[in-house]
């Protein structure tokens, strides 16, 4: 009897919980729709001509729908050039950040030497500094280095210069995440590698790196988003607009004299595509790879 009763109670409770969950789900769902609305509205507007909206108001029923804004945006933004620039900056920067980050994390967690903690501290704190704090000296250094090697465009006005500053800044975050993850990897794996006489190089590239795949995947998504979306460094460290990434090409649509907002919307939607692809392709690995704080470790 008592068992039956308690089971009954449990059932009731589960039932109540179920209703509550549904309510919560609906509530969160309504907010989720609100969350997407701004993007959806922009997308909707990007299919309409601006002149029509100017004439009939934003809420007017559409008379003309089509991809014409996209066609114009693609031709005015010179997409291939600017997408290529974005790739030239983002891909090496993400790659180097992850490489350096995992190297640092590897050494500080797997080998014990005096400066482990100090280094980790330095990197993490550095990642949190405001970018504007370093920008004038970095600019001056890039120019000075350029003059030294006889080519002003050695780092300044060169995508490598932008790559390096991104790497220098983001490395801290990567090191931090990777080192917390590495702490969760049993030490025995490293030990057996070392006992087998693997040198440091093999130990890292053959043993550790494959194990780091999940956090590397999540970091890759985050880093791609951050670096791809940056416009500050590309603005101040480059002088040739044709070398700047896609985020600055949006400015070309915002012409002072004819701001066609719907054209701008189309441009914005185009610019978002790469990060969206990266996110949706890696969505599964994304959250699972970011075991921050590692309570289990």
């Amino acid at each position: 009897m008592t068992i039956e009763k308690s089971q009954d109670k449990k059932k009731k409770k589960l039932y109540a919980q179920d209703i509550k969950d549904r309510l919560i789900s609906i509530f969160i769902g309504i907010f989720a729709l609100l969350w997407i609305f701004p993007i959806a509205w922009t997308l909707w507007s990007s299919f309409r001509p601006y002149t029509e909206i100017m004439k009939n108001g934003v809420l007017s029923p559409p008379q003309e729908l089509g991809l014409f804004n996209y066609e114009e945006a693609i031709s005015r933004m010179e997409l291939p050039t600017y997408f290529l620039n974005s790739a030239l900056i983002t891909i090496p920067a993400v790659f180097l950040t992850l490489l350096f980050g995992s190297l640092m994390a590897f050494v500080v967690t797997r080998y014990s030497f005096k400066f482990n903690v100090a280094l980790l501290l330095l990197f993490t704190a550095g990642n949190l500094l405001p970018a504007q704090l370093v920008f004038i000296p970095v600019f001056k250094m890039y120019l000075a280095l350029g003059d030294l090697v006889g080519d002003r465009r050695f780092l300044y006005d060169n995508h490598w210069g932008v790559v390096l500053i991104h790497v220098a800044f983001q490395m801290g975050f990567a090191t931090f995440v990777l080192s917390s993850y590495m702490k969760t990897i049993p030490k025995e794996i490293s030990e057996s590698a070392m006992v087998d006489g693997a040198n440091v190089f093999t130990h890292f590239f053959r043993v550790m790196l494959p194990l780091l795949r999940p956090p590397l995947a999540s970091l890759a998504v985050l880093m791609t988003t951050w670096i791809y979306n940056d416009f500050f460094w590309a603005l101040v460290l480059m002088s040739t607009d044709k070398k700047r990434p896609i985020t600055s090409a949006l400015g070309r649509l915002q012409g002072e004299f004819t701001t066609d907002y719907n054209l701008l919307a189309a441009g914005a939607m185009i610019a978002v595509i790469p990060t969206l692809i990266v996110f949706f392709v890696m969505r599964k690995q994304f959250v699972s790879g970011l075991t921050l704080g590692s309570t289990k470790g």
Partner: peptide, 19 residues
């Protein structure tokens, strides 16, 4: 492994910050 990232980080973040 340690030197390259550290150099880059110090040269492009901490040194300019101090400057």
């Amino acid at each position: 492994f340690i030197g390259v990232p550290t150099f880059l980080h110090v040269a492009l973040v901490w040194f300019p910050a101090l400057a």
